[in-house]
């Protein structure tokens, strides 16, 4: 499971980094989304990997903490997802505005040979 997760994070971050270095705004935003997915999975894995373990302990009394997943990274990742989703949406709006304003989808607002 660790290997699959690590590969998944690596592939997503690698593709994301390649894409945000591309000149088209569409590529940049897809790259940022992939990077955000990779980062979110990375945060999630920082609570260690559990299979079939609940993050919330039942009420009352002491229970064995090793039988439960760490709830904190799950809370963190939720916040991170919401924030990166919102800012990416805002970025998308600015990109559409830039497309309308400059007439090109190049990140510099002009084609290289112009």
């Amino acid at each position: 499971m660790e290997l699959i997760l690590a590969l998944a994070i690596g592939v997503m971050v690698g593709s994301g980094v390649w894409l945000i270095l591309r000149p088209r705004t569409f590529q940049v935003i897809i790259g940022l989304c992939l990077l955000a997915y990779g980062v979110n999975m990375f945060i999630f894995s920082m609570g260690r990997l559990y299979v079939g373990a609940a993050p919330i302990m039942p009420r009352g009394g002491f229970v064995d903490p090793t039988a439960y997943a760490d709830p904190l990274p799950q809370a963190l990742v939720l916040t991170a997802i919401v924030i990166s989703f919102a800012t990416t949406a805002l970025f998308l709006v600015v990109m559409i505005a830039a497309r309308g304003a400059t007439g090109t989808d190049h990140v510099d607002g002009k084609e290289r040979d112009q």
Partner: peptide
Amino acid sequence: IKQGIHYIGINLAASLLFLLGAGLVYG
């Protein structure tokens, strides 16, 4: 708008690095 794309882009990327760092600190 042209500068905004650069500004927002670089800050989004930096925020992702922030998250990576914070996650790793917790780990």
